[in-house]
Every structure is written in C-alpha cells, then in structure tokens.
Simulated assay, not measured.
Amino acid sequence: MSAALLLGIAGLALLDSLNPATIVAVTLILIAAPRRPGLVAGAAVLGAALTVFTVGSALFLTAGAAAGAVNGIVTGLRFVAFGAAGIALIVAGVRRFRDRERRPIVLPTWFSPWTALPFGVVLTAADLPNAFPYFIAIERLVATGTGVGAGLLVIAGYTVIYCLPCLVLLAVGLLARRRVQERLQALVRKLGTGTVKRSAAIGVILMLCGAAVISVPFWIS
C-alpha cells in the first residue's frame, strides 16, 4: 500500500468529515440533552463510527460478490434520505404561511446514551448514500488489491477521521463546559423564543426546494 494511496484516502475522509448531519446532531445534544449531555453525545458519535466502519468493512469484504445487493441497499437509503429531507422542507414551507411562536429546543426525557447510540447509527446510515468520498475510498482499496487486514485498518482510520470534528466539538464541550454551556444556552434562548413571521415567498421557495430534493434520487438512480 503506497503512501500516496493512504494520503488520498485520508484526504477523502477529511472531506467526508465535514458532514453537517452528525455535527449538528452532536451540537443539538450538547445543547438540549436532558441529562449527561457529554455521555449522550459520545454515544451518538460512537453510533456514527460503528456505521461507518461496519458498512465500509462489508463493502470492502464483499466487493464484487454482493455488489448488486449493496447497490440496492444504497439506492434504498438514498430514497429514504432525500425523501425525508424533501418532506421536511415542504413542511417547513407550509409553516411559513402563518406566524408561529418558536418552540424551545429540547430533547425528550427518554433520550439517553442507550437511545443516542442507535440514533447515531440510523442518522449516519441515512446519510451514507451521499458520502461520495467514502465510496471512492473503498473503491480505491478494492482496485489496488489491498489485503484484508490492511484494508480494515485503513477503514478504521477513515472512521476516526470522519468522526474527528464531532470528537473535537465533544472535547471542547467537556473541557470548557461552563463557557460552552453559557454560549449554547444563549443560542437556545435566541432560537427557542420569539415569533417567526409569516412569509409566503419563503414558504413557496422551501416547498419548491423540497420537491426538487425528493426528485433527486430519480435522476441519479
């Protein structure tokens, strides 16, 4: 395995790590978890890491033999991910046709490390169809004939880099808990209070964007 290949895969992992889904999820948990926010956020990151490593290992080990099945799973996840995002945009657009009070940002009381772990798994799995650097990295491992042991080590390293922004955010939240908590609480008060004024123009734009997002899998499948 060449240094150029490792550097290329590390670059792909770094690009993939700038994923807003997991970063926003960890931020939300640190802000609004009912108790033990650090532990709950860590469990969500662990769930994301398990998904990245498990799916990547499965793709690497079964490349060719299960290519059709993997493609079917990826296509299905793509429809789910884009469909959910499109529906969320349409609902947000409909809500902009009237004034509404902002609701406080809270997580349910049952949201704990035990529920955050599968939450991280599902959130990351739904987002994987859009993780093009991820699939390019695995394709490079297969194309270069990388051995099983070395390939799994590389995928483990990719997983660590993928989770790096969330781990940094988590570490900052734990080490500077009081300062971070004060700033996050200010953000909570800003986003969770007041009135959102109606805007028909924004509502229409959001609904059109939602319809466009829903149609994306039909164009790329």
Rank of each mutant, 00 (worst) to 15 (best):
G83L: 06
P108K: 08
Y162N: 01
V106Y: 02
G151T: 05
R98I: 01
L167N: 05
F97S: 10
I87M: 13
A156L: 11
V106S: 09
T75W: 13
P108L: 04
R103H: 10
I136H: 10
I87N: 10
W114C: 06
F135I: 01
R102V: 05
P129D: 08
L152V: 09
V180I: 00
L153I: 12
G120P: 09
T144I: 11
A150M: 09
C163K: 02
F79P: 01
G86F: 03
L123H: 00
G76I: 06
G149K: 03
L174C: 10
P165L: 00
W114P: 06
G72N: 13
A137S: 05
R177T: 10
C163F: 07
T124E: 15
V91L: 12
V154L: 01
P129Q: 10
C163S: 12
R103M: 09
R96L: 15
V106R: 09
V122Y: 12
V142T: 09
R179M: 01
G76E: 12
G151N: 07
V74M: 12
V70S: 15
W110K: 09
L152D: 06
G93H: 04
V106D: 13
T109V: 14
F79R: 03
D127Y: 13
I73N: 11
R78F: 13
L152M: 02
D127L: 15
I105V: 14
Y162F: 07
V94H: 05
F135A: 09
G120T: 09
V70N: 15
G86P: 06
P129M: 08
G72C: 13
L152R: 01
V172N: 00
I105K: 06
V180K: 00
A126L: 15
F132C: 02
G68P: 07
V154P: 04
L77D: 03
F132Y: 13
F111V: 01
N71Y: 15
V106K: 08
V160R: 01
W110M: 05
L89T: 01
I136S: 08
N71S: 15
L164P: 01
I90P: 05
F132M: 14
G147Y: 03
L152N: 02
R95M: 13
A84S: 11
L153H: 02
R95E: 09
A85E: 04
G149Q: 04
R102M: 13
V122M: 12
V91E: 04
V142C: 12
L164I: 09
I90E: 09
P108E: 08
L123F: 12
A69L: 14
A69H: 10
P104G: 07
F82V: 04
A81R: 03
I73Q: 06
V91K: 01
V160I: 09
P129F: 14
W114Y: 11
G76W: 11
C163P: 07
R95S: 13
I87E: 00
F135K: 11
V122E: 05
I138S: 12
L174W: 08
V80Q: 03
